[in-house]
Design a protein around this nucleic acid. Structure first.
Lengths: 251, 251
DNA sequence: TTTAAATGTGTTATTATGACGCAATGTACT
DNA sequence: AGTACATTGCGTCATAATAACACATTTAAA
């Protein structure tokens, strides 16, 4: 895979890559999809290169699709990272030998790479993490327990989470992270988890209801050890309208 | 200049550029610093390439400094643009001939370039627009009268302005665009110009005052054809604090 | 049947916002 | 010198949004 790309590197945008921070929500945890390649003890964000005949946004969608099997995804570019030393010594001679890549071809990889960060919000249960080879492990990891990552991937992840927190004040987000039917307490947990902060149940209900993007269903959640909460779904039309116009006008 | 870069293109990050949207405020107009090169009838955003031994942020600062002579500037990366056809036919054979660049070397320029967009807020009066050669015109242009721009520069400019509008709801901005001493009505005009919307004088005063970033000076503006407005300056310490923590908490 | 743990539906006090009114002030004009 | 004009500074009031909190209801399990 990587070897193929390197040996045909003239088909890819030079010195540029894409890294995706893929968020999911499960068990009241904000999860991040991470990858571990056997030769490296550290984990990394799923990423890839940009074919010269593809828009960068298209390339990002492709990477996401390949890893998660989900499409129709919420995907946003949030920042581009380009410190001179960001991938210093990531592909050194030893790694190239290991990958059986000729030194001449490998030079392409040893230069500074600038990477474009995208973050995605996906429905955890609809996602099937797909390793791109048998040397690779793909796993959902609680964002609070992310292990050491390669290069500046921790910085990229942090920036993505900060962006998500800010966006939470500007637009609704649950549509992409929750299943079709959900309860208000579940939605609240999602907000609390992202913001890392407790919210008042009753005030949350009022605020989220006032936005006008929820449809109360004639159905209750079953198999709960307490009063059964009502199920809701999003009113997609109004949801998209709010997404477009934003939540707070401010001035 | 460009010729030098092309002939030494191994010293620059391949396929990547930076474009800056530089905003200033003057005569109640939001101005944008634009460039016209004689060989091209269209205007463009000031931009440049990234030396392989420079962080992208540093390269952006350099571009900005070269064009405006101002340093200690507010500069933010806001998006990266990479459609496949974004610079199609921008540097064709004719242009290369005109620039006296060999075709072989010129190939570097004919590929798709991905460009990283930065926007800057600068003090109009402290800025001295500097052409980088005598073939170049650098000018402040009212953002409402921006002429046709090359490539996707209009899209980049629009995105920068939209980002600025959003940021206005998340943080204070006047510090970078206004002189040290200013009046509340001036600050309000700035907000109105950026948002393209009238605000109520009295409510604006209340809101901006409540943020707690203004220092009322013991001084009035002179030479005005009406009641002399009071002068204010920013309390830099509190200003930076609000910049860091954000304006609206939302949730 | 009782209990524990949530949920659904309020209430109240406080604060923020939007829409105004009116007096004060500095310049320009008669 | 006096008045008109444009604009500033300060204030009010009704309404909406927010934070803090109380109480009854429902479900599964003890």
């Amino acid at each position: 895979m990587l070897k193929d790309i390197i040996e045909n590197n003239e088909n890819y945008q030079p010195g540029l890559s894409i890294d995706c921070v893929i968020f999911g929500f499960h068990d009241n945890q904000l999860k991040v999809l991470l990858i571990k390649v056997d030769r490296n003890p550290k984990w990394s964000l799923p990423g890839g290169f940009i074919p010269i005949d593809q828009d960068i946004d298209t390339a990002a969608v492709t990477i996401l699709n390949d890893r998660t099997g989900v499409d129709g995804i919420f995907l946003r570019q949030f920042a581009t990272f380009g410190k001179v030393k960001r991938n210093d010594q990531h592909f050194d001679k030893k790694v190239l030998e290991y990958l059986e890549i000729e030194e001449a071809k490998g030079k392409w990889l040893m230069r500074r790479f600038v990477t474009i960060g995208y973050y995605a919000l996906v429905d955890f249960l609809k996602t099937i993490p797909k390793p791109s080879s048998d040397r690779e492990i793909v796993e959902w990891i609680d964002h609070k327990e992310v292990p050491e990552l390669i290069l500046d991937h921790k910085e990229i992840l942090d920036k993505a989470l900060n962006t998500l927190r800010t966006e939470l004040n500007l637009m609704p987000i649950g549509y992409n992270l929750l299943p079709e039917k959900f309860t208000i307490p579940e939605l609240q947990k999602l907000y609390e988890t992202i913001l890392d902060k407790k919210l008042d149940r009753r005030n949350f209900l009022r605020k989220i209801t006032n936005i006008g993007i929820l449809k109360k269903l004639d159905e209750k959640k079953s198999n709960v050890a307490h009063k059964a909460p009502n199920l809701y779904s999003f009113d997609k039309e109004k949801y998209d309208e709010v997404l477009k116009n934003g939540l707070n006008q401010g001035w």
